[in-house]
């Protein structure tokens, strides 16, 4: 769930945000419907909405009894402590980690590796680039560029190389979002997910593009994802959580009922 000013919003390719509801109510609904874990990203994080963020995190912690991750604007140990002490189980870092990779090690040392999710927003690049890890896809070789500031700033950094570095520094989990697919409901970026999941030893959550239950199946089987995140498909009740889970179970994927 992308949260801004205390409301859940959803966009397409990180733009045109629409209001999708109250975070605490949605959290309760998804928990009751059988979601395994929730992720809240405060996509327009800034210092003046800290109190709103804390209120939302505490509200969610009281409403549900499944794990949840909170990210957005977490730059250091004290930001992370605020979120974790308000009831979150994990924090996710994105921009701060790219700009200062040591923050991953700091957080991991203080709170434990299992608490530290490194979120990577990545976009496909078709141009040739020296020193980037390229991946063969049906549209030819591509590399993946890391974006920061909620998808607003291209960094020139190779996402796969960055994941390997972050893993070395103590990332406990990766949340890999395809900006090309986000909100499109065209399916996850399988090549991006697999390229990272096959190279790191910690769990990878695939994000961006889920539209139908088959997309989940594909990202688990071909994409080698450890978990799949979806927003639009659940927010607008196109496929409830249980419908997706039932489909996966019928296809032989082990999922919690």
């Amino acid at each position: 769930m992308d949260v801004t000013c205390g409301k859940v919003v959803k966009g397409v390719n990180f733009l045109n945000l629409k209001n999708a509801g109250d975070p605490v109510e949605l959290a309760k609904r998804y928990s009751d419907e059988g979601a395994d874990e929730l992720v809240f990203l405060d996509i327009t994080a800034s210092s003046d909405n800290r109190d709103i963020l804390r209120g939302v995190v505490e509200g969610v912690a009281r409403a549900i009894s499944i794990p949840f991750t909170v990210g957005g604007g977490i730059r250091n140990v004290s930001d992370a402590r605020l979120v974790l002490c308000s009831g979150a189980d994990k924090v996710s870092v994105n921009t701060a980690a790219v700009e200062n990779p040591q923050v991953i090690t700091r957080l991991s040392d203080v709170f434990g590796q299992q608490c530290v999710v490194v979120a990577i927003d990545a976009k496909r690049r078709r141009d040739k680039a020296e020193g980037k890890i390229t991946v063969e896809t049906h549209e030819g070789p591509v590399w993946f560029e890391v974006y920061t500031y909620g998808g607003r700033k291209p960094t020139g950094i190779d996402a796969i190389g960055w994941a390997l570095q972050a893993a070395e520094l103590g990332a406990g989990e990766f949340l890999v979002t395809s900006m090309d697919r986000d909100g499109t409901e065209d399916g996850y970026d399988i090549e991006l997910t697999r390229a990272i999941s096959e190279r790191v030893k910690v769990p990878v959550i695939a994000s961006g593009g889920a539209g139908v239950p088959e997309h989940f199946l594909k990202v688990f089987t071909e994409g080698k994802a450890d978990a799949a995140l979806a927003a639009s498909v659940f927010h607008y009740n196109k496929y409830p959580v249980q419908v997706v889970k039932k489909f996966l179970r019928e296809q032989g994927v082990i999922v919690r009922p």
Binding site: E58, A61, R62, S65, L84, C85, S86, G87, A88, D89, F111, G112, C115
Partner: peptide, 8 residues
């Protein structure tokens, strides 16, 4: 870390 979840 997080003790609030257990308290709740």
């Amino acid at each position: 870390g997080n003790l609030l979840s257990l308290k709740c």
